[in-house]
Computed example of a mutant assay.
Amino acid sequence: MKSLKAAIGVALALVAGVALWEGYKAVGDPDGTSVFGVRILPRTDDAAMPHVLDVLRRLGEPELAGGRPVWRVVFDACLFTLGITAVGFLVGTLVGLLLAVLMQRFRVAERGLLPWVVLSQTVPLVALAPLVAGWGGALSLGPYPWQPWMSVSLIAAYLAFFPVAVGMLRGLQSPTAIGIDLMRSYAAGWWTTLLKLRLPAATPYLFPALRLAGAAAVVGAVVGEISTGTPGGIGRLVIEYSREATSDPAKVYTAMIGAALLGLAVAGFVALVEWPLTRHRRRVLLP
């Protein structure tokens, strides 16, 4: 029942988005809406805002004359970026979990690391990505040279670790004083308390953080592909299609749709993993 409501909510959101797009295109100014000489709403001509039907139709047409359909090109690019995102997501999640456990165990670590964890997210990604690509070019993993996609995965991990570290830290600190005193009365050490009390208590905080981390990893991968020029992914495809914005504006939005669906797919995968793991917990909490 809950999954049906979620599906209906997603469908209604899509319908509302399409209606808003087409409604503004129908009544908006072709030159855009400006206030005090500053444009606050985009132009509504076909070059800037093609009809949704035109974008969907373009997905089924060949990318080039006699070539593959656009939807297949976008799909393959999304698969490439998905692999990069998965690596970055796993690395970022692992780093975030380790930082959270470290900061919970040692108060001095929390005071020393947490401000830097927060500060790390203020660095512009477009400025960081070329540096990561440059550093990676001088590295190697044993006999294996550093690959360009590894730099993109590292950028994705950079964005993914933050919500996991902050959310997991809050979850590990969520047990009540009564629960902690009870574990102490059983002579349970820190490790046993972590496994038996803190980790189960952190589950409601962990999965929302993982969904944010998944979306952040997609953003990092797309921006990383654009900034480093890594070919094959949806980020690079956005740049390539943007060059045809004047002659084929609908084609630009096909790549953007692919990037958006990729983010939704990653968040949906985390939700699917969450459901069987938290179902038992919800059943236990019911009176």
Score class of each variant (00 low, 15 high):
1 M>R: 10
2 K>I: 12
2 K>V: 12
2 K>W: 13
2 K>N: 13
6 A>E: 13
7 A>R: 11
8 I>A: 15
17 G>W: 05
19 A>F: 05
19 A>S: 01
20 L>T: 12
21 W>D: 11
23 G>K: 02
23 G>H: 01
34 S>K: 10
35 V>C: 00
39 R>Q: 09
41 L>H: 12
47 A>Q: 15
48 A>D: 10
51 H>R: 15
52 V>Y: 07
55 V>Q: 11
55 V>R: 11
56 L>Q: 03
56 L>Y: 02
62 P>Q: 12
70 V>Q: 01
73 V>N: 04
74 V>N: 02
75 F>H: 07
77 A>C: 09
78 C>L: 00
79 L>W: 05
79 L>G: 10
80 F>E: 14
80 F>N: 15
82 L>V: 00
84 I>M: 09
85 T>I: 01
85 T>P: 03
86 A>R: 05
87 V>P: 00
92 G>L: 05
94 L>N: 07
97 L>K: 04
99 L>R: 08
99 L>H: 07
102 L>N: 06
103 M>P: 00
105 R>Y: 08
107 R>Q: 02
108 V>C: 08
113 L>K: 04
114 L>F: 07
114 L>N: 12
115 P>R: 03
116 W>E: 04
118 V>D: 10
118 V>M: 14
122 T>G: 15
129 A>V: 10
130 P>E: 10
130 P>T: 04
133 A>F: 12
139 L>E: 13
145 P>N: 03
147 Q>F: 10
148 P>R: 07
148 P>I: 01
151 S>V: 02
154 L>A: 15
163 P>E: 14
170 R>G: 15
171 G>S: 08
172 L>E: 11
173 Q>E: 08
175 P>W: 04
175 P>K: 01
177 A>M: 06
179 G>N: 03
180 I>Y: 04
180 I>A: 14
181 D>E: 14
181 D>K: 05
184 R>S: 10
185 S>E: 01
186 Y>G: 00
187 A>H: 15
187 A>D: 15
189 G>K: 06
190 W>Q: 11
194 L>P: 01
195 L>A: 15
197 L>P: 06
199 L>S: 13
203 T>D: 09
206 L>F: 12
211 R>C: 09
212 L>K: 01
213 A>S: 07
221 A>Q: 09
221 A>I: 06
226 I>S: 14
235 G>W: 03
239 I>R: 04
242 S>V: 04
243 R>D: 12
245 A>G: 09
251 K>N: 07
253 Y>H: 13
259 A>M: 01
260 A>P: 11
261 L>N: 06
263 G>W: 01
263 G>Y: 02
264 L>R: 07
270 V>L: 00
273 V>E: 02
277 L>C: 06
279 R>N: 03
283 R>L: 14
